[in-house]
Design a protein around this nucleic acid. Structure first.
Length: 335
DNA sequence: TTAGCATGAAAAA
DNA sequence: TTTTCCTGCTAAT
């Protein structure tokens, strides 16, 4: 259930482990057999993330578009080259066994192969390891548990196998092949992404869009055509950080506040990509931060805190449905 | 064993 | 605005 930061990390993972290699593609689940057949035997050329979507380019202008939706996840196994920023993230956390980390080796029953999952928190357990040079990879012929390739577990829509890395995709909302033109069309529909677009131009686009809409800002932040990558957690947290009432029509939000929202997203996304965590209480002092991170439910200002006292004013955090998604906010701080 | 839930979005109405 | 789809975890039974 990734928001934008996770998708950028996934793309980074593909760049390090899959791009530049020929893949063996298959659809163990059977629901992407034709697409897998097209990809099979092609070299991956490029990985690109825009908002919550990832695009993987292969030889001969064949592109794979993946949107994980709420349930999707990529599981990596084998010799996984982990981005060095993960080390700094872990160092900052000060934990070796935290929950909620997006890249976490998981050991199978044999205790040999390591698996790493990015995307859904359901896989986010186990120890974070800095050096991912995995042991236990059998020779090419080995097909037993703990061997190579790893056994298929559960519903795997698409498996991309290189000589040393296995990437399994499960539960995506979208998984399709596209032409370069179709990729461009998909991207054209998306609002600015701070890690894709020039941040100054992005700010102008975002501000111009928001300032002419009568729609509630709480809806606009979730609208991927307005701004890319923000999901339900970041929405709630950003509105609180801006002390902004979610129901305020976009056109009524002061210009400077709109721009500050964009700059906050630029900041939060960068932190999220670097750490793999949705750090929205980044202004806490180190000790408070340590305490907050020790408990999964202490990480947010308002998200998932319905009925609990606001961290700033003590008012009970409100939970309401907005466009059939849960919205958390403080009616006192966010006027 | 089952029901309910989740960091999403497109189609249907 | 409501329904539908995608998957797996967890609390309740």
């Amino acid at each position: 259930m990734p928001e934008g930061h996770s998708v950028h990390r996934i793309a980074r993972q593909f760049e390090r482990n899959v791009v530049g290699r020929v893949v063996a593609a298959s659809s163990p689940q059977g629901r992407f057999v034709e697409g897998a057949a097209v990809l099979d035997g092609r070299e991956a050329i490029e990985a690109r993330a825009v908002g919550k979507q990832m695009f993987l380019a292969f030889e001969d202008d064949v592109w794979l578009r993946v949107h994980l939706g709420m349930y999707g996840a990529w599981d990596f196994a084998g010799e996984i080259v982990v981005d060095p920023t993960i080390a700094s993230a872990n160092g900052r956390m000060g934990h070796t066994n935290q929950r909620g980390t997006e890249i976490a080796p998981i050991y199978d029953a044999a205790g040999e192969n390591s698996l790493s999952s990015i995307g859904a928190p359901r896989r986010a357990r186990g120890r974070v390891r800095m050096s991912e040079q995995t042991t236990g990879l059998g020779d090419d012929g080995a097909a037993e548990d703990g061997g190579w390739p790893p056994p298929v577990v559960g519903q795997v829509r698409l498996r991309l196998l290189t000589d040393v890395t296995c990437a399994d995709l499960r539960g995506p909302t979208a998984c399709q092949l596209q032409t370069p033109e179709e990729v461009q069309a998909t991207i054209a529909k998306l609002g600015p992404d701070p890690l894709v677009d020039d941040v100054t131009e992005g700010e102008e686009r975002f501000a111009a869009t928001v300032r002419r809409k009568p729609t509630a800002i709480g809806l606009l932040l979730m609208d991927q055509s307005v701004v890319s990558g923000i999901g339900n957690v970041y929405r709630a947290e950003m509105l609180f950080r801006a002390r902004l009432n979610p129901h305020t029509p976009g056109r009524d939000v002061p210009e400077e506040t709109v721009r500050e929202l964009w700059r906050d997203w630029v900041r939060l996304l960068a932190i999220g990509v670097e750490t793999g965590q949705m750090m929205t209480m980044d202004d806490l002092d180190p000790e408070a931060w340590r305490r907050a991170m020790a408990h999964r439910d202490d990480r947010h200002w308002v998200y998932h805190r319905a009925g609990l006292p606001c961290r700033v004013c003590g008012t009970s955090i409100v939970l309401e449905e907005m466009a059939s998604r849960k919205l958390y906010w403080c009616p006192n701080c966010q006027r």
